[in-house]
């Protein structure tokens, strides 16, 4: 393998990772508070989860294409689309985590004279952490895969190799994008699994 290829793999991997990290950071920053707010409102919750579910079923290539007229081509559009995909697992796992905390424990906390906010921060969120981190993990791994499509709208990343390989009928070029993307996904999975274990309250 030549030097130029290696350095291109490295720079596109970095670009890829950047897209993913920005998308996951924004999706987490939106998804966590949204989920917390939704645990307090059952009716709105069904609507929101339904909407997120539908957003998830839109084929990613179509979504990227759909956003181009509004957001133009490039990184911003890609990040917006990736965020939408990452939002659902984060939202759903945070909800499941908080709502899954034993009601008897929350009731005890209230009965001891903890305020709603104290119960949220000291009891519900710590006990929901494993589920929340699992959501971020699922979102990250799938986003690393989906982000390859970002190249179609000029956002760069490892998808550049894949699309180039397809248009040149060159399998090796496809693999130059696909293999590093798969390795990134595996590495992210490992790292986040480790974080999940470390943060587990039990």
């Amino acid at each position: 393998m030549n030097r130029a290829l290696l350095s291109e793999i490295a720079s596109l991997s970095a670009q890829h990772l950047e897209l993913v990290l920005i998308a996951i950071a924004i999706a987490s920053a939106m998804g966590l508070p949204l989920a917390i707010a939704l645990t307090r409102r059952a009716r709105v919750r069904r609507l929101a989860v339904g909407f997120a579910n539908i957003a998830q079923t839109i084929p990613s290539l179509a979504l990227f294409g759909f956003l181009v007229p509004f957001a133009g081509i490039g990184k911003t559009t890609a990040v917006v689309a990736l965020c939408l995909y990452a939002l659902l697992p984060i939202l759903r796992n945070t909800l499941t985590g908080i709502l899954g905390v034993d009601r008897a424990i929350c009731e005890s906390a209230a009965a001891m004279g903890m305020t709603g906010r104290q119960i949220l921060w000291q009891v519900e969120l710590p006990l929901a952490v494993p589920s929340i981190v699992a959501g971020v993990r699922i979102a990250t791994v799938t986003t690393i895969g989906t982000a390859t499509i970002a190249a179609a709208i000029g956002a760069g990343g490892l998808g550049v190799f894949i699309f180039r390989g397809i248009s040149m009928f060159d399998r090796n070029t496809v693999l130059a994008g696909a293999i590093p993307a798969a390795l990134l996904a595996l590495a992210a999975d490992e790292v986040l699994e480790w974080i999940e274990r470390k943060l587990s309250p039990l």
């Binding site: 424990i105 009731e107 005890s108 209230a110 009965a111 001891m112 004279g113 710590p126 309250p201 039990l202």
Partner: peptide, 17 residues
């Protein structure tokens, strides 16, 4: 008032974490 009433339930209701 709640802080002046101790509360004990069947399995203790202890915070597991």
């Amino acid at each position: 008032s709640r802080r002046r009433m101790g509360y004990v339930i069947q399995d203790g209701g202890l915070f597991p974490h």
